[in-house]
Design a protein around this nucleic acid. Structure first.
Lengths: 249, 249
DNA sequence: CGCCCTTTTGAGGCATTTCAAACATTGTGG
DNA sequence: CCACAATGTTTGAAATGCCTCAAAAGGGCG
């Protein structure tokens, strides 16, 4: 497909200069480092859209944190089809699924020009474990990833296409808001195709859903720019699923 | 629904007597404990089918490990529908999704008479963090959970009902085999309804799929007893998805 | 034995997919 | 800077996999 090779080239940026450090799983990692030697998270040169940070099966060398831009994380099945697992933004942790073995278990690719910081292993892992503060951050980041994936399963398993789309937009909205950006106006860094894969519907369905939402006055969409005209309506649509399922014993 | 209250009642069983300790995330936790005070993982009294170990939103008090039997883990959406996230067996870790906050983010209920061991928090968490050995085990367990959930998303997003069912059976088969049980003959601890929810299809579809698989000579099914007659055929069906999706940039 | 819940099987309906075609956008090389 | 190719987006119409509804058969348990 593409022969992009990522040579991770650290720059001199530090966490102190990072706008997003307060969301960052590694926010305590730098200050906790001991003196001497290359230390702390290292920020690499920007990745262009379409460049892979790592691929499923690659040897695990570092964990990463998104510093600027956005990425998508996806898995391949044996028979070559792909499922996007998550879209990730500044402060989000990448690559943890490889920690159980020696290899990444998902692929990560930049959606736009994106910078990431590296926590090289195993030194990084030791730092993560040795510091109670950092370790707590890591726990938080990982459990939040588990929760995200549980919600993704809920979305794929129980919601209609319309509800999936609405839920997705609300989730983006919340994440932009948490980062101090507008809750109601933003640019999508992913294509319709990529949204379709994440929500597990056809591209054409995504297109139709955007049209519907515009017709109903919930959204204004111009290419990748989205303005949410009515958050309450959108929340309503996010809950119109396939009906409640049976109770557990 | 049910008013079962779990009062966790520790017994005197230790990891040394546990048949599954070699699969267990806590296998190094006991020996690493310091002297004095209640210590190490504690095995509780058995839970009956339908008893909840904890529910989404409950205060996080312990992590648990399945010691015997099996459980299912599920999440509720705001509008009351449920999605089963995983079925879990001896050695599997429960409750980690609560580590980021003070509350569990999923519910766990016994599928059959089930024993679990508790790693009480925060003492347990400290032990987990302080011991490099235990911490490595924990990393492995958690990353393996992330991978399971990625595969679940792949299953829900990209596979036909038939392929979901086949994949599910193969996954059970592999897990039984890993625990020294038969790869081809086993009893399901979950109902058709529960399988249906996990695979996100209707119960009737599950029933029809079992019938199909029997008719094709892939399985022999008698109530909850399943015998796999042809693993290769089953593997073939597990990959007949909805066709490969488009390539990522 | 009889009630209840689970499982099975059939028939029809619907949400979403697939196929097809027009249009817009982006990138490329002359 | 424009023409052209490649890719992404939108919309319509037809096809389909799975769901919903309905009803009967099969255990489990008091």
């Amino acid at each position: 497909m593409d022969g992009n090779i990522v040579t991770f080239a650290p720059t001199s940026s530090t966490c102190g200069t990072c706008r997003w450090s307060k969301f960052c799983v590694a926010r305590h990692a730098e200050t906790e480092q001991r003196s001497g030697a290359p230390k702390g998270p290292l920020c690499g040169a920007p990745l262009r859209r379409g460049t892979h940070l790592f691929r499923q099966g690659d040897e695990l060398k570092s964990l990463y944190v998104v510093r600027a831009g956005s990425v998508k994380c996806y898995t391949d099945s044996e028979d070559g089809c792909e499922q996007t697992i998550a879209f990730q933004f500044p402060g989000d942790l990448l690559g943890f699924d490889g920690m159980g073995g020696g290899a990444y278990q998902s692929s990560v690719v930049a959606l736009e020009t994106t910078a990431v910081c590296a926590l090289p292993l195993p030194r990084g892992a030791q730092a993560l474990v040795e510091s109670a503060q950092v370790s707590a951050d890591l726990m938080r980041a990982v459990s939040s990833q588990l929760i995200d994936r549980q919600n993704h399963a809920l979305l794929l398993g129980q919601k209609s296409a319309q509800a999936r789309m609405s839920t997705f937009l609300l989730s983006l909205s919340a994440r932009f808001a948490a980062r101090g950006c507008s809750r109601t106006e933003f640019n999508l860094s992913m294509s319709r195709q990529e949204i379709a894969n994440y929500l597990a519907v056809a591209v054409e369905t995504i297109s139709r859903l955007f049209s519907d939402l515009q017709r109903r006055g919930v959204l204004a969409v111009d290419r990748r720019f989205v303005r949410i005209l009515s958050l309450p309506k959108l929340e309503l649509m996010a809950h119109e699923g396939k009906g409640a399922s049976v109770a557990h014993a």
